[in-house]
Simulated scan of single mutants.
Amino acid sequence: MDRREFRSLVRASESLGVRDLMVITWDLEDELTYDKHKIKLTPLHTWLLTTQTQGP
């Protein structure tokens, strides 16, 4: 993962007031801290299986 991605994510979260930060990866699962912000790294297959869709 590139620091540029984390830096952009943190800046966007501060602008939007978002506290839960997540990066969807191909196969990496981890939690890290970047500039005092916790960022959760989640594999795509896990995210797809746990994300609830809102249907009719």
Rank of each mutant, 00 (worst) to 15 (best):
M1T: 05
M1E: 08
M1D: 00
M1V: 10
M1R: 02
D2P: 15
D2C: 13
R3G: 05
R3H: 07
R4G: 07
R4Y: 10
E5G: 06
E5W: 06
E5R: 07
E5D: 14
F6W: 07
F6S: 01
R7Q: 15
R7F: 09
R7D: 15
R7A: 15
S8V: 12
S8N: 11
S8A: 15
L9V: 03
V10T: 08
V10D: 04
V10E: 09
R11P: 00
A12M: 13
A12D: 07
A12E: 15
A12I: 15
E14G: 07
S15D: 09
S15Y: 12
S15R: 11
L16N: 11
L16W: 02
L16D: 05
G17M: 03
G17T: 05
G17F: 05
G17P: 10
G17D: 02
R19G: 09
R19Y: 13
R19K: 15
D20G: 05
D20V: 14
L21N: 02
L21K: 04
L21P: 00
M22Y: 12
M22H: 06
M22T: 15
V23E: 04
I24G: 02
I24A: 08
T25K: 04
W26E: 11
D27K: 05
L28D: 10
L28T: 14
E29Q: 09
D30A: 02
D30H: 12
E31Q: 13
E31S: 14
L32C: 03
L32P: 01
T33M: 10
T33S: 14
Y34E: 01
Y34G: 04
Y34P: 05
D35C: 04
D35L: 12
D35H: 08
H37V: 00
H37C: 07
H37G: 00
H37S: 10
K38D: 12
K38C: 00
K38H: 11
K38L: 00
I39G: 03
K40T: 14
K40D: 03
K40Y: 06
K40V: 15
L41S: 07
L41M: 08
L41H: 07
L41Y: 08
T42R: 11
T42G: 00
P43S: 06
P43Q: 04
T46E: 09
T46Q: 14
T46Y: 01
W47A: 14
W47V: 01
W47T: 03
L48W: 01
L48I: 12
L49Y: 04
L49W: 06
L49V: 02
L49M: 11
T50S: 13
T50H: 08
T50Y: 07
T51P: 02
T51E: 04
Q52I: 09
Q52H: 08
Q52P: 04
Q52G: 06
Q52F: 05
Q52A: 10
T53V: 10
Q54C: 07
Q54Y: 12
Q54S: 13
Q54M: 14
G55T: 15
P56M: 10
